[in-house]
């Protein structure tokens, strides 16, 4: 029954985004289509929001534990960043990338329905659980959007069409993402002290979280040293790869054999 519900919600969301995006593109010629396009795109995200609320209630615990569950949050929140950027800075292209990325995450979830497990191991039963994961999620959402914006800027740069606002968007999203990443890292350390006895043990996930934090720390300093913004767009676009390794690549590395962050127990 679960799988059917998720399939329905995900399909509905993806159709809303696709039609909304098409109407948005068509509105360049026919301005009357602009509003319906925006409403449809937002509806797609709202469908997922309602689904998450229902799923949370159904599980009886926050759906923030498995990778599939975090992907669900991403798929919901990334388009939201696109909508906010359009509303705030009148930049409309970002939302298309965001909806595309969200669709990609939903498709992964549709192809790999996870074994559904309601249990939460004792170490995860903590008041730190929700703030730690939510702060990271929001941070990753901003950085995913920043990376997408940077990739778009790289594309524009190759066609010699760079804009000042373009690099501004990727820059502000990166700063916001970095602030959330910092909070996530420190919340994680404070929680680790309560659950595992020490705030930092160089667990592979911690190491990779530190690495991604350093990657963006380096960006911010390079930016403040006035390094050519166009070169930095490449850097920002690629930095997200480090985050992806941290997010789900760690489980496949040889170093993860003793990690406390691999929740697949025997």
């Amino acid at each position: 029954m679960m799988a059917i519900d998720f399939t329905t919600a995900a399909t509905a969301a993806m159709i809303c985004w696709a039609v909304g995006a098409l109407l948005g593109i068509a509105s360049v010629k026919i301005p009357a289509l602009k509003m319906p396009g925006i409403i449809l795109a937002i509806t797609g995200t709202a469908v997922l929001g309602v689904y998450i609320a229902w799923y949370w209630n159904f599980l009886g615990r926050p759906p923030l534990r498995t990778l599939g569950e975090t992907r669900l949050w991403y798929a919901t929140l990334i388009p939201l960043v696109g909508f906010i950027v359009e509303f705030r800075w009148k930049i409309s292209w970002l939302k298309y990338y965001c909806m595309g990325l969200a669709t990609f995450f939903l498709v992964i979830n549709l192809m790999h329905p996870e074994v559904f497990d309601k249990t939460l191991m004792p170490a995860l039963q903590s008041p730190w659980f929700v703030p730690h994961v939510v702060v990271y999620l929001v941070g990753y959402v901003f950085l995913a959007a920043s990376s997408t914006a940077a990739a778009h800027n790289v594309y524009l740069g190759l066609r010699s069409k760079t804009t000042e606002t373009g690099s501004m968007v990727s820059h502000y999203l990166a700063i916001l993402g970095f602030v959330f990443l910092t909070f996530g890292l420190i919340f994680g350390a404070l929680w680790a002290k309560e659950a595992w006895g020490h705030y930092w043990t160089w667990d592979p996930k911690e190491t990779w979280a530190f690495l991604s934090w350093l990657a963006y720390l380096a960006y911010l300093h390079a930016n403040s040293y006035k390094i050519d913004r166009n070169k930095l767009q490449w850097y920002l676009a690629l930095s997200f790869i480090v985050l992806l390794v941290c997010w789900f690549g760690v489980n496949y590395l040889p170093s993860s054999q003793n990690s406390v962050h691999t929740y697949t127990q025997s």
Binding site: L214, V250, S255, N258
Partner: peptide, 19 residues
């Protein structure tokens, strides 16, 4: 910046090679 990148590279070793 150079030192941040060096710390990142050394951490990368720690993040890949089992400790």
């Amino acid at each position: 910046l150079s030192l941040i990148l060096a710390i990142a590279l050394l951490s990368l070793i720690g993040g890949v090679v089992p400790q």
